[in-house]
Structure formats: structure tokens, C-alpha cells
Design a protein around this nucleic acid. Structure first.
Length: 572
RNA sequence: GCGCCUGUAGUGAAGGGGUUAUCACAAGAGGUUUCCAACCUCUUGUCCCGGGUUCGAAUCCCGGCGGGCGCACCA
């Protein structure tokens, strides 16, 4: 078959079989929005479940679920309102559009802090030329808002809000509850799957750049002075890594994650652990590991919140595509939310190994004397006394208050004593390591890598070789003929299978048996169970394996047992 | 957003200012057949949307929407 048309054949299949289709098609469709049909939605649910199970197997990681509508304040604090409102300048001559701040990089230290009129002024003053046609006729800078804006409340006085551009803020909002849940002990993680929204300028490439998309994010809160270290030798596979070309390890390498960490390519032990866990997840859902690489962001490419970032990229019909971003967000979010919200709950407590004992001499105010003597300034005086570092040898002495004025402290106003304090720890803002998965992009690559075009007896033949745990149906029941009792028996078996928890089966009765196998193979059903004449006599069934069309014969009881214990594959 | 190309059943395509728009595959009903897209009969279903030109538009023109590629954008 023509390899060039592979992508369009795959896309046709996805539409035809109800896997992924354009949304709102009878109204002309909307670019950047897609539907998962009856088959695709099953696959998607199972991919998401696999993701939740993968990270949920780590004991200190929990799942949460937050609103997609997010008040403006939250996204101001997170930096999204600022970062997502880039100004664009359009060239009047050729129509090219460019980020206004990028045009001014040479002329201003911090061009992204400027407003529209300042940008326009600087652009014309410096005679900035259009990078594509060389003209310097610019239209006025205008904002492009990459977030969908809405408001909370139907009437006047409503609050400005946005559809969330990432799920991560939900985890930060819940930090106090998480900290309590985990009994004030780091590290811990919270994960969430759900929709995110970005009003892309030009969505392209099918399900790769969507305006509404499925994300799966995990925020792992750690003590930066005591980051968790994992035994990386559990992941012996070599992976392709492309470190920052401007960094100390500029060359692409094939190494294990453990080697990458030990050689300093990956600096942070927790980031290294997430790279390994991410790789394992992708393999588990049927991504071809030889088509995966990790690429480190150059500092210029980094998101506003990150200090280090590795993209996990997968190659497929669309080329190398970022499907996971693993970022060290440090304390950026929690600190910024603390500042904006004035909440005191966004910290963690770190006990010192050896509590710091301090004893120092202090002058304690005698309230009954200080009060009447200084009246409304008595509080100030007490404060100034507590802040004294060099205690005067004797009274009376002159004490400087915070407002700069001095008062005279007389004998009897203070008592000298030894104060003992024990500092057993300190509050700090946890750091956050975040893996952020683009579920739709991963599903695309699962479909891409498992879409097999082959030849069968001279004809073209297609198999979606999905991992059995991700298949839209676990098996299909096929009566060889839809009559003579085979139809009844097939439906009885389907009923029985339907009562097994977590197993989804369907029945297909129309047309020839070969055609029905082909239909099942095409949407990735791993097993076909055929009821034939012999089944009626002795209760045995044919089990056919999708990937090699091999068959065995077992009785109904064995089938039910194997489905219940998920051991059907062991019979082959 | 700009430029080039493009839009016909579920899918892939042909055609095209004039009677009822064509084909293959798919799908539904029935028949036949003892396990890999067989065959026979019947059936369902299509010109992206809006405006213009015209006696007549699915066809030509303009706009919108969608798709592909390039430019730009993409935490």
C-alpha cells in the first residue's frame, strides 16, 4: 500500500468506525474540536484509567477533581493572564503577524511588560522592519488572548473568569487540604485528569493541536532540600535524550535514566524518576519505545513557571510531537498564590534534625510601669525592647523606637532575665515537580503505532493492535450462523460475560465470519469467540487471537474463568 | 491571521450550466455457505453553508465554515 496515504487511511478508519471524528460536523464543524465516538470514547476512558492506575500505584499520590471554570485572580497569580495575553503586530504590507514584544527584543530589556501603545511607539520609533517583507508599516498592536474568557454570575456584578488552560491550578488550590490529608508530611502528589482549553490561533494536525483537550497532570510536592530519591535501576531500558544544546551536555545520547542522572544530564532525582515512570507508562499503553525521546527545553523556551523542563516526544505521522512535559515548577505557583491570596496555608514544616536551642538575655517590660508611663506608645516600647540585640549594661538608657524617636527607659521599667527558646524547625514553600500529559496526543500515537497495514492472502488487511487493556471491547462473540441455536447460545454466553466485572463484550451476527473477524480486528478487539455447530454438541468454543489469528478450542466454563481471572492469554 | 490547494452517500473516488448525479467499498433485510472482507436478490444514503450571475447552479463568481500544505503563532 502507498505509505504516503497511510495517515489519511488511518484518519478515514477513525471516522468510519466511530473512534475520532470532527465535532459539530452537520453545522460545518469547528476547527480544533473533535469528538470521540462510541469506540474511541471507550479507548480514551481506558487510557485515562491506565494513567490513573499507573500513578495511583504510588502510595503517596492521590486523585482530585477541580472545576474547569477558574476565577481570574487565580490565573493572574499563576501568571497565565499575563503570559497568555501576548500582543500581536500585523504588517500592513504583507499581512504577517508577529508577537510585538519579540519585534522589540533588541530595543528593550523587558518588552513583554509594555502595553499596546508603548509597543506601537517603540516599534515606530526604532523603525522595526517586518521580518518577512522588510516593510515598516505596522498596524496597531492587538491582544491575542489564548484563554477562553467567561464570567461567573448571569447578571451585573459577575466575576471575570477563564476556562482553565491547565488542570494544575486545581492541585495548587487544594494544597492545604492535601497537606492535611497527608498528615503534614512531604513528599506527596495529587493528580487530575480532565479538559483544558486554549484558544489556539490556528489549530492544525487533527487531534494534535486542539482548542479543548484532555490533560492528565500530576503535581508532586517535595522538600527542595530533601528531594525524594528513587532506585532508578528498576528501569534498565536505554532512552534517547536530547539535553539543552546550550547546556553542559549538548549531545544527543542513548542512556538509561539511571545513567542520565548519574552523569548529570538530568540534575534532579525526582525529575529523573518521573522520566522513568513516564517511559514505562507509554510502553504499557502500547507506544513503540524506539519512537520516544526526551528533549530538554533551552532556557529561552521554558514556560514562565518552570526552572527545568523535559519534553517527552513521540514520532508518528505528524513527526516528533510533544506528548508529555515534565517540569520543575519549583515554588513558583505556591509562592505566587501565597502572595496574591495572602493565605498562610501554602507552606510545609521542616523539622531540624537538631533543634536549635538559644538562650539570650532579654529585657522584659514591666507592664504595670510601662503602660502608665507611655500610654498609647507602650506597645511600641515593648516591641522595641524585644528587638534589642545589644542590651544596655544598666538603666536608665535611651531606647530608639521604630518611628525613629527615642524614649528614656528608667530603672524599674524592665527586668533582666535569661530567655530560652528552642527552634525545632521552619516553614518553607514546597517545590513542585509536574508531569503533564496530553491525553489526546498520546491516544493519537497509540492509534498510529498500533495501526498495522498488512497483506492477507493477497488482500490489504488492517489490524489495530491495541494493548488488550485499552481495547474498546475485550472480546466479540460470533455465532457462526445466526440461527439453528447458535444465535441463542451466543447470546447466552454474551449475557454471562456481561456479568463479569470490568469485561466488555459485544456480539456481531451479520455477514460472513471472515468479515466479522476483519471488523473486530480493525477496531482492535483482542479476542473473538465463535459459536459453531460443535459448540451446540459439546459446549466448546473457538477462541481466536487478533494478532496472529491463531485459534484454540475451550469450553464455556474455562472461558468465563479465564475472563474473570484475566488469564485468557495464557492459553495460547 | 496571511498565501496556495481543497470540500460530491458511512469511507474512498468519478463527473459536471439542462431529464432521475455515477462507481467501488461499507451498512440494513433476505438467501446461500461448517471459521477468516466469497456469492446472489433487494434496500438505505451524497453535491459543506449563504449570497450572486443565469430561464436553469451540485457545476461559474463572491463570502463564510471545514480540511491539507507553507509562513507566522504554539507556556
Amino acid at each position: 500500500m502507498d505509505p504516503k496515504g497511510r495517515m489519511s487511511r488511518l484518519t478515514s478508519l477513525l471516522r468510519r468506525r466511530g473512534i475520532v471524528l470532527p465535532s459539530f460536523e452537520i453545522y460545518g464543524g469547528v476547527s480544533g474540536l473533535v469528538d470521540y465516538g462510541p469506540v474511541g470514547a471507550r479507548i480514551k476512558r481506558r487510557v485515562v484509567n491506565s494513567w490513573i492506575d499507573h500513578w495511583g500505584s504510588v502510595p503517596n499520590i492521590v486523585e482530585i477533581d477541580s472545576p474547569t471554570i477558574t476565577p481570574e485572580d487565580v490565573l493572574v497569580a499563576s501568571g497565565h493572564v499575563g503570559e497568555f495575553n501576548d500582543k500581536m503586530s500585523e504588517c500592513k504590507s504583507c499581512g504577517g503577524a508577529f508577537r510585538s514584544d519579540h519585534l522589540l527584543d533588541e530595543f528593550h530589556d523587558n518588552p513583554d511588560t509594555l502595553d499596546s501603545s508603548e509597543l506601537d511607539e517603540l516599534i515606530s520609533k526604532n523603525g522595526v522592519v517586518c521580518p518577512s517583507c522588510g516593510s515598516h508599516e505596522w498596524a496597531a498592536a492587538s491582544a491575542m488572548n489564548l484563554m477562553f474568557q467567561t464570567s461567573i454570575g448571569a447578571m451585573g456584578g459577575s466575576r471575570s473568569a477563564f476556562m482553565r488552560p491547565e488542570t494544575a491550578q486545581g492541585m495548587f488550590m487544594l494544597y492545604p487540604a492535601l497537606y492535611r490529608h497527608f498528615r503534614q508530611r512531604l513528599p506527596f502528589g495529587a493528580m487530575q485528569t480532565g479538559k483544558g482549553y486554549r484558544n489556539e490561533i490556528s489549530p492544525r494536525q487533527g487531534m494534535i493541536r486542539l482548542r479543548e483537550f484532555n490533560m492528565a497532570e500530576l503535581e508532586y510536592f517535595i522538600d527542595p532540600e530533601n528531594p525524594p530519591v528513587t532506585d532508578l535501576s528498576r528501569w534498565p531500558r536505554k532512552v534517547c535524550m536530547i539535553p539543552d544544546p546550550e547546556g553542559p551536555h549538548p549531545n544527543e545520547v542513548e542512556v538509561t535514566i539511571e545513567e542520565a542522572f548519574e552523569s548529570g544530564i538530568v540534575k534532579h532525582p525526582t525529575v529523573a524518576w518521573f522520566l522513568a515512570m513516564t517511559m514505562q507508562f507509554l510502553e504499557d499503553v502500547g507506544i513503540d519505545p524506539s519512537k520516544v525521546r526526551f528533549r530538554q527545553h533551552a532556557s529561552s523556551e521554558m514556560a514562565h513557571y518552570a526552572s527545568d523542563c523535559w519534553d517527552c516526544e513521540i514520532i508518528g505521522e505528524h513527526g516528533w510531537i510533544e506528548v508529555v512535559g515534565i517540569a520543575n515548577r519549583t515554588c513558583h505557583d505556591l509562592e505566587s498564590h501565597e502572595k496574591h491570596s495572602k493565605s498562610g496555608l501554602l507552606r510545609a514544616w521542616r523539622s531540624f534534625e537538631n533543634p536549635i536551642k538559644e538562650s539570650r538575655e532579654v529585657l522584659k517590660p514591666v507592664g504595670s510601669v510601662i503602660g502608665p508611663s507611655f500610654r498609647d506608645r507602650a506597645g511600641e516600647v515593648s516591641l522595641a525592647l524585644s528587638e534589642l540585640t545589644d542590651l544596655p549594661e544598666s538603666t536608665p538608657f535611651s531606647l530608639t523606637l521604630s518611628d525613629g524617636t527615642s524614649v528614656q527607659i528608667e530603672e524599674g521599667m524592665v527586668t533582666r532575665s535569661l530567655q530560652e527558646t528552642v527552634v525545632s524547625g521552619e516553614y518553607f514553600t514546597p517545590h513542585v515537580i509536574e508531569p503533564a500529559f496530553g491525553i489526546d496526543r498520546i491516544i493519537w500515537h497509540i492509534l498510529d503505532h498500533n495501526y498495522l497495514e498488512m497483506e492477507k492472502e493477497g488482500d490489504e488487511y488492517t489490524i489495530l493492535s491495541l494493548e488488550p487493556t485499552l481495547a474498546p471491547y475485550d472480546l466479540v462473540v460470533l455465532p457462526l450462523f445466526d440461527k439453528d441455536g447458535m444465535d441463542v447460545m451466543a447470546r447466552e454466553i454474551l449475557d454471562e460475560i456481561g456479568s463479569i466485572s470490568g469485561v466488555i463484550a459485544e456480539i456481531d451476527t451479520s455477514r460472513s465470519i471472515g468479515r466479522r473477524y476483519a471488523r473486530a480486528d480493525e477496531i482492535g478487539i483482542p479476542w473473538a469467540v465463535t459459536v459453531d455447530h460443535q459448540s451446540l454438541d459439546d459446549g466448546t468454543l473457538t477462541i481466536r487471537r487478533r494478532d496472529d489469528q491463531s485459534q484454540i478450542r475451550i469450553d464455556v466454563g474455562t472461558l468465563i474463568q479465564c475472563l474473570t481471572s484475566k488469564t485468557l492469554h495464557t492459553l495460547f
